[in-house]
């Protein structure tokens, strides 16, 4: 039976359920579990739920060490850019240790962080930095767009034996949707068709899925049928589902909140150029953020980011309309 819940609640539910399932799962981060009244502290105790100082290098590095020696840490990092002060742990420690040890070591941990807060958070709090992560073999990266995916991917992330970067989108946090009760695990590397269609394939992640679905609805009223695909995890990336859709539609629009050359869109475009070129009836179109930092003022921020209007325009342009 699914229950209706918010995206933020769905993530929390998965963490609680996994901590109940496996006593090796610990959860810590800044500004959580402050008092004994905290629900997670009450349920799991102060040994497994800990508050940390603003010390990302240690928070993330300690998780790596704990994971190497038998725990399964979930670290709450709040905003993805805060990890940049400790990027070595994410990109050059956690994902490398297993490989360098010739497969002797496992580093099962989850770094959880929000991203893309397009609400006036300006240059250092609203960026999309997943491009730095998706090219690091050994690291898995999840980008859930719906409450159900938020739960299923969190469960999968915690059960996975590898370091996982779990990135939740700040703009979708309060969005509600049906979430399956009980054990619900979404495998990595399996895209989801969020809306079937036949004229154009639209691929998007995170908040851009919401925008793409809205654009698809608008376009449907004009008789244009758009298929919206959400890869859900960008490492591993399910290229097959995208190429199969392009086989059917012959047209591809890639929507991404990151700047053009730091986007998942550019990677997918490359894959489709190699594997689906002969199916394409028009050049691939990328709708990404402009190549700027994120400005504070609303009209500037809007101008820089992809919007429903820009997506509609792109879909029409690949149709020659």
């Amino acid at each position: 039976m699914p229950s209706e819940m918010m995206y933020a609640q769905a993530m929390a539910t998965a963490i609680t359920e996994e901590m109940t399932r496996d006593s090796n799962v610990i959860f810590y981060g800044q500004n959580l579990g402050m008092t004994d009244r905290d629900p997670l502290v009450r349920k799991f105790g102060k040994s497994r739920v800990r508050i940390t100082p603003i010390s990302e290098t240690a928070e993330m590095g300690i998780a790596v060490g704990a994971a190497m020696t038998g725990l399964r840490p979930v670290v709450e990092l709040w905003m993805s850019e805060f990890m940049l002060v400790a990027m070595g742990q994410l990109l050059n420690e956690a994902p490398r240790l297993r490989y360098m040890s010739g497969g002797q070591i496992k580093v099962p941990l989850v770094f959880k962080a929000g991203y893309g807060f397009a609400a006036g958070w300006a240059g250092q709090h609203s960026n999309c930095i997943y491009h730095t992560m998706m090219g690091i073999p050994g690291l898995k990266v999840a980008l859930p767009s719906t409450p159900a995916d938020a739960k299923g991917l969190m469960a999968a992330s915690i059960r996975d034996d590898n370091p996982v970067m779990y990135l939740h989108h700040y703009m979708t946090m309060l969005g509600k949707g049906p979430v399956p009760d009980g054990d619900y695990v979404i495998p990595f590397g399996v895209a989801d068709v969020k809306r079937p269609g036949s004229d154009v394939t639209l691929v998007a992640t995170g908040w851009m899925v919401t925008k793409s679905l809205a654009a698809a609805e608008t376009l449907a009223k004009e008789g244009i049928s758009v298929e919206v695909i959400d890869p859900r995890t960008i490492a591993p990336l399910d290229v097959d589902t995208i190429v199969n859709s392009v086989k059917k539609t012959g047209r591809l629009v890639l929507v991404d909140q990151a700047p053009r050359h730091a986007s998942v869109a550019a990677i997918i475009a490359g894959e489709v150029a190699e594997r689906g070129f002969h199916h394409l009836k028009a050049p691939v179109k990328m709708v990404t953020a402009l190549d700027t930092s994120i400005p504070y003022s609303e009209p500037l921020e809007k101008y820089v980011l992809p919007s429903e209007e820009k997506i509609v325009w792109a879909v029409k342009s690949v149709l020659g309309k």
């Binding site: 603003i54 805060f82 940049l84 002060v85 300006a122 250092q124 709090h125 504070y296 003022s297 500037l300």
Partner: peptide, 28 residues
Amino acid sequence: GLCQGFGGSMHLADPAHHFPGTSGIIGQ
């Protein structure tokens, strides 16, 4: 605005008045 709307509350800067700027990332 001081930064023409690019920075907002967290990122005021006014080098002419001996205030070169700020960071929103702790410690930096």
